[in-house]
Amino acid sequence: MEQIIANGLYLGAQYALIALGLTLIFSLMNVLNFAHGQMYVFGGFITYSVVSQLGMPFIVGLIASAVTLAAMGALIERFLFRTVIRRSAREESTMLLAAGIAFFLDAVILLLFGEKQRGVPKIVNGVFNWDFRLIMPYDRILIGVLAVAMIVCFILFMQYSKAGRAMRALAQDRTAAQLMGVDVDRYSMIGFALGAMLAGLVGALLVTITGINLGMGGPTSVKAFMMIMIGGAGVISGAIAGGFILGMMESVGLSVLSSFGDITYLVIFASLMVFLAIRPQGLMGKPWG
């Protein structure tokens, strides 16, 4: 049982961090960023290049991923989403744009980084073993702690910084925020950059444990969407809750249901359908409470 809970918490921490970026972008711009998974993959590959190919420390890879993805996010918002949102009132226009960016990034990743699975050396060696009741490699513990620390930093940033307050205001009421003097364009761009940066950071963190490959983008996006559906789209606390709930469901399901074959995700999807029928807005439904 201890092992199942520990696995669930570890999965939940990384899932929550993935979902945060997605929910931030949705709350600010009402954009479903289907390319979020590809941004995660891009971040992982950048860290791989910096650490394994250039031989630099992991922290440099982490920073490089964060900066690159933030810049990529800002450029995508400035030159693609902002233009489309201005020219088209139809919501599906941004959805199609996001899907197009996802395919584009897939092709770029294949061209730049190749088709192979990549990984970087463990950043910490050794395994914590509590009498075989709880086994957890130290690098997973470290990544889990870093993920939680980043979530806390993100919450504090959103809560207490000027940019964070501006973005929360935007999420609550775009027009009112504009009337109060919030620079909508500027903070939309910062928000998108922050969301992309979070995706890149998770990719950079997890490349040390799960490795990274071209095909991870799509499934990561799907899981991220599941998390924000559980927690409530556009709500930070909802994304965190959704991440931990999904992580725990996965951990429990894979252990308890293993003798029945691979039915864990079948059960999760079925539960999600029932849940959404009862509470379509998710657990914490309203943007920014």
């Binding site: 999965l11 991870m216 293993s258 003798s259 995700y265």
Partner: peptide, 19 residues
């Protein structure tokens, strides 16, 4: 011989635990 996993699995610890 019953344990399976999704191809997009990123953490195999819970998958392999019962095996």
């Amino acid at each position: 011989d019953t344990v399976t996993y999704q191809v997009d699995t990123t953490d195999f610890t819970p998958v392999l635990l019962p095996v």
